[in-house]
Design a protein around this nucleic acid. Structure first.
Lengths: 364, 364
DNA sequence: CACAGGCGTTGGACCGTTCCAACGCGGCGA
DNA sequence: TCGCCGCGTTGGAACGGTCCAACGCCTGTG
C-alpha cells in the first residue's frame, strides 16, 4: 500500500485536488460540510501531505536551522528547551547544526547558506566570527543570535541583562555587610563577561565601596586556574569576604578553593555565581547565583526568528535576570579568619584503564 | 536575481538538464570533459540544487530525526557530538526533536511518523514507552536507540558495556585492598543501572568478597537523597571504605556526604563514579570513574542508522568502557576512622530576587 | 426576466528535480 | 556496404503539492 496523495483523497471525497488543498491550508472559502468530509477522509486514511512537495510548490521550507557549539554547555541545552517549546507550536522543524571549532563553523555557515534548507537561522552561544552570519543575514536569511558571546552587531540578538544581574548580586552582598568583594573575571573577550564586570564595578560604587584592583582576578572559566587565583586572593591581607564568579561552574571552583584554604562558605567567604544551572541547587552549600532565564531566552529568540521569517523584524531584546539566594552567601564575618592553608595542588593526569587491561592515556 | 535552476545551468553549459542531473549525481556515464564544464558553470554561478525538489523527485528525504530528552544531560550532548560528526559527512541533516515528558513524547513520535520527514530516527537516552517506536520501526522507518534506559527490545541499540564497566571498577577497588565496598543503586527500572548492579555483585564475587545487603542502598539520581543514604552507610559499624555510585553526578553527592561526615576522599573513603562527564576531571578530588565512550556511541549509532537506511540492518552494539583512575580512589585505610558527624541537613527552598526588587519564588 | 455578484469548486500550469526510454553517432565485424 | 553495439546525450513524464484564473450556480436587484 503506497502512500496516499492529495489526488487519492480528492477522489475518495469526490472532489478536485484543489479543494482538498484548500482544506489542507484551511482556507475560509470551503464549505464547512465539505471541509468536514475531506478531513474525515484524510483522518480515516491516515493521510499526511508530503512535505517535500509542499516545500517545492510553496517555494519555502519548513525548517529553521539552529547552530549550537557542541551541546555540552548547560546553557545551550536550556536555551534549546525554550526554542523547542516555541518551534513545536509552529509549522517549522529544527535542523540541528553542531559546530565545534572555527573551521567547521565557516564551512557550516556556507553549507547552510547554499543548501537553502532553512527559512531562518538561530545561533546559540556564538563565539565565532560574526561576519559570515552578517553576510547571510544581508542576503536575506533571517538570523537571530541567542546568548551570544560576541560583541553586539547588526544582528538581532536575545540576551540576559548581564550588567543588571551582577549589579543586583552586589546589592545583595552589600546588604549583607560585605565590604571586601572580589571578582573573578570571565574571558573579557566575551561581551557578557564585560557587562558582568561593569555590573560589578557599578554595584561596588553604588554601595559606596572602592574598587580595589587587587580584588579583581582574571580566571577565565578554567577550574584549576580559578582555584589558584582564589587561593591567592584569600592569602591577601585584607582578604575578600565575598567573591563574585563569572558563572556557576566557576563558582564551584571558587567554593572548592575556599574550602581548600580551610575557610567555610558562607561563614568566612560568601560566593555568588551566574547562570543558575540545574546543579547549583544541589551544590554544597547550595549556590546563590544570578539566574539567566535561558528557556525564556530561547523562546524569545525563536519567536523573534519566526516573526522575522514573516517579515516583522525587531531589534532583539535583553531579558531580566533574577537573583536566587541560597546558602553560599551570608553576613560578612565581623573579623575575617585567616586561611589555614594557602595552596591547592592536585595533579591532573589520571591513569586510564580499559575494561580489558590496564593501559595509559592522557586526558583533561 | 532569482535562484538558478538546473535548467539555467543546462542552458549555460549548452546541454540538456538531464545531463546536468547526471553530473549532479555523478554518474559514470558522462564524458569527463562535459562533467568538468558543467561543474565549472555551477561553481561560477554558485548553483546548488533545491533540496525540496530533489527530495520530491527521489521520493526520499535527506533528514534523520533525532529525539533527545531535553538536552540538559551531559551524556546527550556528548552523544550528539558523535552523531553530528558522522552525519555531517553524509548527505543527511539532523532534525532535532526535543521531548521532555511522556505526553509530548507520544505526540512527537506520531508527528514524526506522519510527517514522513525523516529517513530514519535516532533516539537518545530514551526512557519512555518503547511501543510507539517499535510500531514505527515495523512500519519501515529505521530506528536506532543510543544509550537507552529502557530494557532491550527488538530495536537495534548502541550501549556502553555497563556490566563490564562496574566489574572493572570493582577489580580496581579490590586491588587497592578494599573489602567493604558499598553501592548506591540508580533507578533499577533502567536497564543500564541493573547491568551496573550486576557488575557490582559479580565484581565482588570475583574478588572473593561477600555481598553485604546493608551496603547496597537505593539512592536514585537525586543528590539530597543520595547524601542522606551515604550518611547512613557511613554511620554503620563496619562502614564501607569504598562507594560505587551509579553515575558521576551521584558520585559528587557521595563525595559531599563523605566530607560532610568529617571523612576524607580518598584517605577514608574511596568513591567511583560512572560516565566520566567533563566536570569529573575537575572535582575535588578529581573523580575516578568508568568512562562511557559517548561520542563513539553517537558515532556508532549514526553509522548503524545510515546503514539501516541503506538496507543493511544490524543488531546493535555494546561498546567497551574504560576506567579512568583519578584521585577519589586510594588504598583502603588500615583502620577505618569513624565519621565525626552523621547527618547532613540543608534546606532546599531558596529565596529569589528579581533584578527589580525582592520577590519570593519557590524552586528546586 | 436579464444581469451582477458572491460563493464554492475546479482544471491545469508550475515548482525543480530524477529517471527512463529513446536517440544519434562513430567504430567494428560480417 | 550494412547492421549492430556502446557511449554519451536528450526529451519528457513523473513526483505531490500550491495557486490562480475561470466556471457554474444561486440569490438579490433593477
Amino acid at each position: 500500500m503506497r502512500k496516499l496523495t492529495i489526488r487519492d483523497i480528492a477522489q475518495l471525497a469526490g472532489l478536485s485536488k484543489s479543494t482538498v488543498s484548500l482544506v489542507l491550508n484551511n482556507s475560509p472559502k470551503v464549505d464547512p460540510a465539505t471541509r468536514e468530509r475531506v478531513l474525515e477522509v484524510m483522518r480515516s486514511h491516515n493521510y499526511t501531505p508530503s512535505s517535500a512537495a509542499t516545500a517545492l510548490a510553496r517555494g519555502r521550507t519548513p525548517f529553521i536551522g539552529m547552530i549550537v557549539p557542541g551541546l555540552t554547555w548547560h546553557m545551550v541545552a536550556a536555551v534549546n528547551y525554550g526554542v523547542a517549546s516555541v518551534v513545536e507550536q509552529s509549522p517549522y522543524e529544527i535542523i540541528l547544526y553542531t559546530s565545534t571549532n572555527e573551521k567547521d563553523y565557516t564551512a557550516l555557515v556556507d553549507r547552510i547558506a547554499t543548501s537553502g534548507l532553512s527559512a531562518g537561522l538561530l545561533v546559540v552561544t556564538h563565539d565565532q566570527p560574526l561576519e559570515p552570519l552578517e553576510r547571510l543575514h544581508r542576503s536575506g536569511l533571517p538570523v537571530v543570535l541567542v546568548n551570544t558571546l560576541a560583541a553586539p552587531s547588526e544582528l538581532p540578538s536575545v540576551q540576559a541583562d548581564n550588567y543588571e544581574g551582577t549589579r543586583t548580586a552586589l546589592r545583595h552582598l552589600a546588604e549583607l555587610g560585605h565590604t571586601r568583594i572580589a571578582c573573578v573575571q570571565g574571558p573579557m573577550a566575551y561581551a557578557c563577561c564585560e557587562d558582568r564586570y561593569r555590573g560589578y564595578l557599578d554595584g561596588l560604587a553604588e554601595a559606596g565601596l572602592d574598587a580595589d584592583p587587587a580584588l579583581t582576578v582574571a580566571g577565565g572559566f578554567h577550574a584549576p586556574t580559578v582555584r589558584e587565583r582564589v587561593s591567592d586572593l584569600l592569602a591577601l591581607r585584607g582578604r575578600p569576604t565575598a567573591i563574585v564568579a563569572p558563572n556557576d561552574n566557576t563558582a564551584y571552583a571558587v567554593m572548592e578553593a575556599v574550602i581548600d584554604c580551610g575557610l567555610r562558605v558562607p561563614q568566612d567567604v560568601s560566593v555568588v555565581g551566574f547562570d543558575d544551572i540545574a546543579s547549583s541547587a544541589d551544590t554544597h552549600p547550595p549556590l546563590t547565583t544570578v539566574r539567566q532565564p535561558f528557556p525564556e531566552m530561547g523562546r524569545a529568540a525563536a519567536q523573534l526568528l519566526l516573526d522575522a521569517i514573516d517579515g516583522d523584524t525587531a531589534p532583539g531584546v535583553s531579558l531580566p535576570t533574577s537573583l536566587v539566594v541560597r546558602e553560599s552567601t551570608g553576613p560578612a564575618p565581623a573579623k575575617p579568619r585567616r586561611p589555614t592553608r594557602t595552596t591547592t595542588n592536585r595533579p591532573e593526569t589520571p591513569r586510564v584503564w580499559s575494561g580489558l587491561g590496564p593501559n595509559i592515556s592522557t586526558q583533561r
